[in-house]
Design a protein around this nucleic acid. Structure first.
Length: 460
RNA sequence: GGGGGCGUGGUGUAGUGGCUAACAUGCGGCCCUGUCAAGGCCGAGAUCGCGGGUUCGAACCCCGUCGCUCCCGCCA
């Protein structure tokens, strides 16, 4: 049976090739097309133009291949090729041949025809594939982001991000979560109000959401039990650091019927472990080559330390917190804690629990008089998550809002969620780019986001 | 918002009071039957962010200004 179908297939394929336009072959798949004439598309990575022979290296998203042209075969074509500039977009037709002496994959393509889709102007603003020592400063690369994105590191980074988001969704769906999309336009400043972007909205004002917090809690009151959202949030903070953005992608989760914040943390650590595992499966080898390290899948459970234990550790290692951080941590303390926990347990992640109500929002459930059922997740010394069990009892929540000096009028729509059978629940928010930054050990968040938005950058 | 640092060819750097401002890379030209991050030779390209001051003389010192950057605050 299989023989017959193979024969018919070959005849059909032959007829197809004779009568139809050629289909594009990806460079990464050329090995399985030896001795065939193929059509490939990509960017001119380098041109080595010698007296009798021309070598073109063409790059697409799957790899690079050398194309060879013996000039005397077609001098007119050779003269045309001589005018090509690196990074031009080309379509090439040629025959694939095995050639072990070619360092690039042991393959080369004997050129038959070539056409220019878009000639790159010269000189380029910078060389995406030049010496690492000559790589322009980040700010300049962001001005020319589309050129910067061509770099191998960036292509891989955004494939890793895609895999990571896929893995998160796989994990959540496997665990009974529903995906939600909450609005980013809001009618009233909800939580603090200080860091909200305000914009004209017909005859009134609107605000850009700085968190889906209230809306995902609404889904708990709505009986969805388990939800997640991956979406944009906006913070009008003039922060000039390597880890802040005014617009970023927030990874949010909320789950009902929790016994405590522990349920949220154990869910999150398993999700992160799964995401690391998937990324390692699909990109571990490339990460080793491109970023130069072995991606480690973290063990669960992650270490958990209370805030007072954290302060004890800081004392032991001699880190001085500023006096106003009695119930809190500063970025330096987070780095030191991350390092110390790594040394003591081998884990890159650590949950800090039992935060003081004084430094937490009103909706975090209290644990005793002063503490809360909340946590931060520190990864590679960087804060990537805040989570908590929420306060779901209307009267208690109202009292906590008042304790924080909030006017109930502004948040009445939110308080109403808790009037008609809202289950106990908890969740967290995690910065997508911060996670990617930690995972790939990159020093600046602007490297890990498609297009950075900050106080001084709205372009491109 | 507070504090520190940096602005030199397209890009990355060197030069810290007396040079026609150097090097690498890229760019242009020539040479080279097979290269492979090719190689060799030649060439173009910077009034040293901008404005003022000190000095016989400023890329270099001082003041201002603009831009960038890092740290803190705030957070993810």
């Amino acid at each position: 049976m299989s023989l017959r179908y193979t024969l018919i297939d070959s005849i059909l394929l032959f007829l197809f090739k004779e009568t139809q336009k050629m289909e594009r072959t990806l460079i990464g798949e050329l090995r399985s097309h030896l001795e065939e004439t193929v059509l490939i598309k990509g960017w001119l990575h380098v041109l080595r133009d010698q007296k009798k022979i021309q070598f073109l290296v063409l790059r697409d998203r799957t790899g690079m291949v050398q194309i060879t042209h013996w000039k005397p075969n077609n001098q007119e074509l050779a003269d045309l090729i001589s005018t090509f500039t690196t990074e031009s977009a080309l379509t090439v037709v040629g025959k694939v041949s095995d050639n072990p002496s070619v360092k690039l994959g042991g393959l080369e393509i004997q050129l038959e025809s070539i056409s220019v889709e878009n000639l790159a102007e010269t000189p380029l603003p910078f060389e995406p594939f030049g010496d690492k020592d000559n790589l322009p400063a980040l700010d300049f690369r962001l001005d020319w982001r589309y050129m910067d994105l061509r770099r191998t590191e960036n292509l891989l980074l955004f494939r890793v991000q895609t895999t990571m988001e896929m893995a998160l969704r796989e994990f959540w769906i496997e665990n009974g979560f529903m995906e939600m999309h909450s609005p980013k336009l809001m009618g009233s400043p909800s939580e603090s109000g200080a860091e909200l972007f305000e914009l004209a909205y017909f005859d009134t004002k609107a605000y850009l959401a700085q968190s889906p917090q209230f809306y995902k809690q609404m889904a708990m009151a709505g009986g969805f039990e388990r939800v997640f959202e991956i979406g944009p949030v906006f913070r009008a903070d003039p922060s000039f650091t390597s880890r802040h953005m005014t617009e970023f992608t927030s990874v949010d989760m909320e789950m009902s019927w929790v016994e405590s914040e522990e349920d949220v943390m154990s869910n999150q650590e398993r999700m992160l472990q799964y995401a690391y595992k998937r990324v390692k499966e699909l990109h571990g080898e490339e990460i080793k080559i491109v970023f130069g390290f072995e991606l480690e899948v973290p063990q669960v459970p992650f270490p958990r330390i209370t805030m007072s234990e954290a302060h004890q550790i800081l004392k032991e290692v001699g880190y001085q917190l500023p006096p106003d951080k009695k119930n809190d941590l500063d970025p330096g303390a987070e780095r030191v804690l991350g390092e110390t926990i790594k040394q003591r347990t081998g884990c890159d992640f650590v949950f800090i629990t039992e935060w003081s109500f004084a430094v937490r929002p009103f909706y975090h459930m209290k644990k005793g008089e002063k503490l809360t059922r909340s946590f931060d997740l520190i990864a590679g010394g960087l804060e990537i998550t805040t989570g908590a069990q929420r306060e779901h009892r209307y009267e208690v929540l109202l009292a906590q809002a008042k304790e924080k000096g909030l006017s109930p009028d502004n948040i009445q729509f939110y308080l109403d969620f808790f009037r008609y059978g809202c289950p106990p629940h908890g969740g967290y928010g995690m910065g997508l780019s911060r996670l990617l930054m930690v995972m790939l050990k990159l020093p600046n968040i602007r490297e890990t986001v498609y297009l950075f938005r900050g106080p001084n950058r709205l372009q491109p």
